[in-house]
Amino acid sequence: MSYRVLIPLAVLAALSGCAGRKQAAAPAPLPVPLPTPVRAAPPLPPEGAAAGLTIPAKLADGSYATPNRNVSAAGAVWHLRAAFNVAALSCPDATLAAAYNRLLAGHRQALAAAHRTLTAEHGGMASFDPAMTRLYNYFAQPPVLPRFCAQAGPLLHQAAALSAGSLDGFAPAALAAIDRPFGDFYARYDAYRTDLAAWRAGTPAAPRLAATAPAGPQLPYDRTVFSANTRVTGGGTVLAAR
């Protein structure tokens, strides 16, 4: 009886030893490769602006050297008229053309006087005309146009309703308000350039506050509308109602 029991036990021991040897010889699992880090896309210019855009110099107080900075009283009136001209031509509000015509009719003398004075400040028409062409193009910059329209439209209606002789007092603050969206855009563009430099260097960009949504749709812009006619007169150009 003992002999018959020992044979199966020996066989089992042998099989158990073989199983242990097979388990010990099993290869170790291969390490799982780490995912390759994906580099973030480069930052984009704000409001669809072009890369490498030339913007005015940033001044010590954080503002920008726009063409509307530190202008004379005559310059404030005439620059404001130029802004309203661009708004009437380029902004989607169809009521602005009629408001602009009322402005010209109600403030003809003030506009003519501002034109004469500002022309003399520029040293004559040879210098004045190119400066005014640059001013028109400044106001019509596509990335800023929606916010410009949001500011200029209501102010144009206010100016058109002013009594004769009050445009001079209205112009400085109104021009500063119209110019503000351009300074804000330049600040966002400077932040983009800082973020782009950090991206190129492989360092994380500083967190930015989300920009306010544009006030309206961005309009197509044909620079020839303003650059083709460089001679600007005393504000007597009447716009056809749209």
Score class of each variant (00 low, 15 high):
residue 104 L to G: 15
residue 218 Q to G: 11
residue 24 A to I: 03
residue 120 A to T: 15
residue 169 G to P: 00
residue 119 T to F: 06
residue 226 F to P: 01
residue 166 S to G: 11
residue 189 Y to F: 06
residue 77 V to F: 07
residue 139 F to T: 02
residue 27 P to G: 04
residue 236 G to T: 13
residue 98 A to N: 04
residue 54 T to E: 15
residue 139 F to Y: 14
residue 115 H to K: 11
residue 6 L to H: 12
residue 119 T to K: 09
residue 170 F to G: 02
residue 226 F to V: 08
residue 138 Y to T: 00
residue 217 P to L: 14
residue 51 A to P: 15
residue 186 Y to N: 12
residue 22 K to Q: 15
residue 15 L to N: 06
residue 130 P to Y: 00
residue 202 G to N: 05
residue 144 V to I: 10
residue 26 A to Q: 12
residue 56 P to D: 01
residue 156 L to P: 03
residue 30 L to A: 15
residue 239 L to F: 08
residue 209 L to E: 12
residue 171 A to Q: 01
residue 46 P to H: 11
residue 67 P to S: 09
residue 41 A to W: 02
residue 106 G to K: 14
residue 214 P to F: 07
residue 123 G to C: 05
residue 54 T to Q: 09
residue 8 P to V: 05
residue 13 A to H: 13
residue 98 A to C: 04
residue 142 P to C: 12
residue 190 D to N: 08
residue 216 G to Y: 03
residue 224 T to M: 09
residue 114 A to H: 03
residue 172 P to K: 01
residue 33 P to C: 09
residue 147 R to F: 08
residue 134 R to Y: 01
residue 132 M to A: 09
residue 23 Q to F: 14
residue 236 G to A: 11
residue 211 A to V: 02
residue 7 I to D: 03
residue 54 T to I: 15
residue 166 S to T: 14
residue 204 P to N: 06
residue 179 D to K: 01
residue 187 A to Y: 04
residue 59 L to N: 10
residue 169 G to R: 03
residue 12 L to I: 06
residue 165 G to K: 09
residue 182 F to V: 15
residue 132 M to W: 08
residue 11 V to C: 12
residue 53 L to Y: 07
residue 34 L to Q: 15
residue 151 Q to L: 09
residue 164 A to P: 08
residue 221 Y to K: 07
residue 134 R to Q: 04
residue 223 R to W: 08
residue 142 P to L: 01
residue 107 H to T: 07
residue 220 P to L: 11
residue 35 P to C: 10
residue 229 N to A: 12
residue 57 A to S: 12
residue 17 G to K: 13
residue 200 R to F: 02
residue 57 A to C: 02
residue 103 L to P: 05
residue 27 P to H: 02
residue 167 L to P: 02
residue 210 A to R: 10
residue 14 A to M: 12
residue 47 E to V: 04
residue 22 K to F: 08
residue 84 F to V: 10
residue 147 R to I: 12
residue 22 K to P: 09
residue 47 E to T: 13
residue 169 G to K: 04
residue 223 R to L: 14
residue 242 R to W: 04
residue 71 V to E: 01
residue 129 D to V: 01
residue 56 P to S: 05
residue 53 L to W: 08
residue 153 G to F: 06
residue 9 L to C: 10
residue 41 A to E: 14
residue 68 N to I: 12
residue 64 Y to L: 03
residue 92 P to S: 05
residue 18 C to V: 15
residue 136 Y to V: 00
residue 233 T to A: 08
residue 167 L to M: 10
residue 212 T to D: 12
residue 5 V to T: 13
residue 121 E to F: 04
residue 77 V to Y: 03
residue 53 L to R: 09
residue 138 Y to K: 04
residue 238 V to D: 00
residue 47 E to N: 14
